[in-house]
Design a protein around this nucleic acid. Structure first.
Length: 749
RNA sequence: GGGCGCUUAGCUCAGUUGGUUAGAGCGCAGCAUUCACAUUGCUGAGGUCACAGGUUCGAAUCCUGUAGCGCCCACCA
């Protein structure tokens, strides 16, 4: 038996250990079955890796995610289950495209339009590939036991088929429609974004009270007011009962007299200001809704670059930022400005990916209708019968309300329901070039404005196709594909089953779907988790996973978010190099209850590095006292021997319970305490004289060897590298790899 | 405006359905040096469990209120 070095040096062994795991093939459950490690009809345990964005490198949040998921996966694998963890990456359309556009502008001074669509997409693909390789390397460094043979990308060929299939089915069921609606337009990125991608900020601005005929109206955005020709008040407002709905008034406005129409609508807050407002349906969501209800005209004031249109008269062509003070000046001159409130707090919408101001615009876009009824032919959803008529909203609600999906911590279930209650139709089209192109074609024969026509008859209808089309299937005429791409979450929503082969009815889909667990950050509960429930519910009539485990954010030691501007980012790879992957993993698991943020400091990681060294030295001590150990010899245990074995049994039971209940932080802490302060400080110290005693030595050797081996098993999911390395040195019966050893406690036995 | 959460030792956090003197890690103080490990061991100091009421034989734990911090949602023009 070789003697171990005095200290544990993770750098020397981690990569080789990972290579041994990978070469064994046991990350792939098919091999577990083939080699008899898992029974061929053993229970399955499957999770998908939330695919990291190919926008660069992994951060501490990813490291936390990998640590938690790998711990659970390794536990279930040791429990003898057919365990599958599917890896992959996400094309993250808007984030990736923005990143490449920025670099392009910085390095070459050119825009995507200078390159053209095809060339630009090539550049993005090259960047994505590079990021992908970096990410894959980092995933390995963390020790993640993912099945690389099943790796997927949200934008690869197989996923494209899934996306087009899903789109077509939804379109055919009337759940996807194209419509002119008010959307969130980012003038800088030149694309729309969904409601969820908006980040609201508060800003102190001037609030202008303007004379509008006999009324006073108020606005923070006078530059939108040129075209206002509807004046709206609440139907119950007694102050304005002399005005009738539909009544016309001629009054003096910014660029001369206008004919205004009185509208009565209950959306108006009588308490607020004067209780009267004018509306700008083209550039405000509330106003748009009012206009829709009363069938009013909408006029565009601001163009897609944020500049005023001809309606602004002499200010046409000017950017709204510049124009505002000039408009105010003009209003003042005309005597239309009554007063200004200078301390008004205005909420402004910005793009959460890039921070640019959002300018609402009316645009032709594709939407998913979340309130439209459809029939679910077959349903595995609890409380929804085969053939039931439901809506997407209802599917999302029922999956959680019925208890079929459990969200941890459970307070997020409330947040989830609240979000669904407020959910509006999902804008899925993006004016980006990187992403799944919308699988819709327009026949352009005799129809030069194909995309803006209303598609009533024949081949003037849009053609939705799973296969790529080159000519119109009706008239063989030329086709034009919709230039837009899909919201990245449309493809991510399919992730649990698109990675398993859907739309093919594969064996993987049969065995591993629904997945058991979805572990991700709480910040993407709506973006992703909800969309997966929607897609799986609709396309499969099933849940995508039965448990959702939401981890918190990894913050710096002062509790601040890690960000470039604060320069407080800790790179997981740096930590791994300095302290080892095991110490890094433990520091992200201990003290991290689901849903709560973790504060990370290097001190914490250093502490766990010491712990891995302690484990090393426990083994070292044991080996030094095992030269004459005969694992097969019959021994009789003393009372103390039995006490050690009993105590371990209790520990194993507790750890198992904690892991089953997703209390990883508790399990890890208990193991830490047991290994260090019970096994090393108490049991080993007490064993030193016992090992000197000829009569008691053999039994104690046996107790220490078996207990320590079992402790390594319990520890393995948390600190896989050091335990795997130590496993090689342990005497007695064992499998080659600790990774596929049997868990030392069977629950429900 | 609506909703949710947090507040326990200097710091980071446990405390699983209310039950004996409230725990851990880090940090701090003292002691120990060729013992598996100084990346160590032993000992110790340190808490009116945010505050005020209430329920109970018994409350860090349940209820009500207050304060501070944080998060989510929302069409106050």
């Amino acid at each position: 038996m070789a003697e171990l070095p005095k200290h544990y040096n993770p750098q020397e062994t981690e990569d080789a250990t990972y290579a041994r795991w990978e070469e064994s093939g046991y990350f792939n459950p098919d091999n577990l079955v083939k080699d008899g490690i898992a029974d061929k009809d053993a229970e399955a345990f499957s999770i998908v890796l939330p695919p990291p964005n190919v926008t660069g490198t992994l951060h501490m949040g990813h490291a936390a995610m990998l640590a938690i998921e790998d711990t659970l996966v390794r536990y279930h694998r040791m429990r003898g289950k057919r365990t599958l963890w599917v890896p992959g990456t996400d094309h993250a359309a808007i984030a990736t495209q923005t990143k490449v556009e920025k670099e392009l502008y910085k390095k070459e001074g050119s825009t995507r339009h200078d390159l053209g669509r095809e060339e630009f997409v090539k550049r993005v693909e090259a960047f994505a590939q590079e990021s992908h390789d970096t990410i894959v390397n980092q995933v390995r460094k963390m020790g993640s036991s993912v099945d690389w043979s099943r790796e997927a990308y949200t934008l690869d060929e197989a996923r494209n088929v899934a996306v087009r299939t899903a789109f077509k089915k939804m379109y055919d069921d009337g759940l996807i429609y194209r419509g002119r609606r008010i959307v969130n337009w980012d003038p800088r990125m030149q694309t729309t974004i969904s409601d969820d991608e908006i980040e609201w900020r508060e800003e102190r601005t001037n609030f202008y009270y303007l004379r509008y005929g006999p009324f006073t109206i108020a606005t923070a955005r006078p530059e939108t007011k040129f075209g206002d020709k509807y004046v709206v008040m609440h139907p119950d407002d007694k102050r304005y009962k002399e005005y009738q709905s539909g009544q016309k008034l001629t009054l003096e406005w910014i660029n001369g007299p206008v004919e205004a129409t009185v509208i009565k609508d209950e959306a108006i807050d009588m308490e607020l200001g004067t209780g009267v407002m004018t509306i700008t349906p083209w550039h405000d969501a509330t106003d748009f809704d009012i206009a829709e209800r009363h069938n009013l005209d909408a006029e565009q004031i601001i163009d897609e670059n944020g500049k005023l249109l001809s309606i602004a008269g002499e200010l046409a062509g000017m950017h709204i930022k510049k124009a505002r003070p000039l408009i105010v000046e003009k209003l003042k001159e005309k005597g239309l400005l009554e007063r200004v409130d200078e301390n008004y707090i205005h909420r402004i919408a910005t793009n959460s990916r890039g921070g640019e101001l959002i300018e609402p615009q009316i645009k032709q876009q594709w939407f998913v209708d979340v309130n439209k009824k459809f029939t679910l032919p077959t349903s595995n959803l609890k409380d929804i019968a085969d053939g039931a008529e439901v809506t997407l909203k209802k599917v999302m609600q029922m999956a959680v309300k019925s208890g079929q999906i459990e969200i941890l911590p459970d307070r997020f279930e409330k947040i989830y329901f609240h979000w669904i209650d407020n959910l509006r139709d999902w804008n899925i089209s993006r004016q980006l070039w990187y992403g799944h192109r919308i699988p819709v074609y327009y026949c352009t024969r005799g129809n030069s404005e194909a995309r803006s026509s209303n598609f009533e008859t024949g081949c003037q209808k849009p053609i939705v196709s799973i296969e790529e089309l080159n000519e119109c299937p009706n008239c063989k005429g030329p086709l034009e594909q919709d230039p837009d791409t899909l919201d990245t979450w449309f493809s991510s929503g399919l992730w649990t089953f698109s990675t398993l082969g859907w739309p093919e009815q594969t064996a993987d889909l049969d065995v591993y779907h629904p997945t058991n667990l979805l572990e991700t950050g709480y910040d993407i509960l709506f973006f992703w988790v909800a969309r997966m429930i929607l897609m799986s519910g609709y396309l499969l009539g099933d849940i995508p996973f039965s448990t959702v485990y939401l981890h918190g954010l990894v913050r710096d030691e002062a509790g601040r978010k890690m960000s470039k501007s604060l320069d407080n980012i800790i790179d997981p790879l740096t930590l791994i190099e300095k302290y080892g992957a095991d110490a890094t993993r433990l520091s992200l698991i201990i003290g991290a209850a689901p849903g709560s943020d973790v504060k990370l400091s290097e001190d914490k990681v250093r502490g766990y590095k010491n712990f891995t060294n302690k484990l090393w030295n426990i083994s070292r001590f044991l080996l030094m006292n095992m030269e004459d150990y005969d694992p097969g010899a019959a021994v009789s245990f003393s009372k103390d021997d039995r006490a050690i074995l009993d105590e371990f049994e209790k520990l194993a039971e507790e750890i198992t319970k904690d892991i089953e209940a997703y209390r990883l932080y508790l399990a890890a802490e208990k193991l830490y305490h047991y290994a260090w302060h019970t096994f090393a400080d108490t049991i080993l110290e007490a064993s030193k004289p016992v090992l000197q005693d000829e009569a008691a030595r053999a039994a104690r050797q046996h107790v220490l060897a078996t207990t320590w081996k079992n402790t390594l098993k319990l520890l393995h999911p948390f600190v896989p590298f050091v335990t795997e390395e130590l496993w090689r040195t342990m005497p007695g019966d064992k499998r080659d790899l600790l990774m596929v050893e049997t868990w030392p406690h069977q629950p429900h036995a």
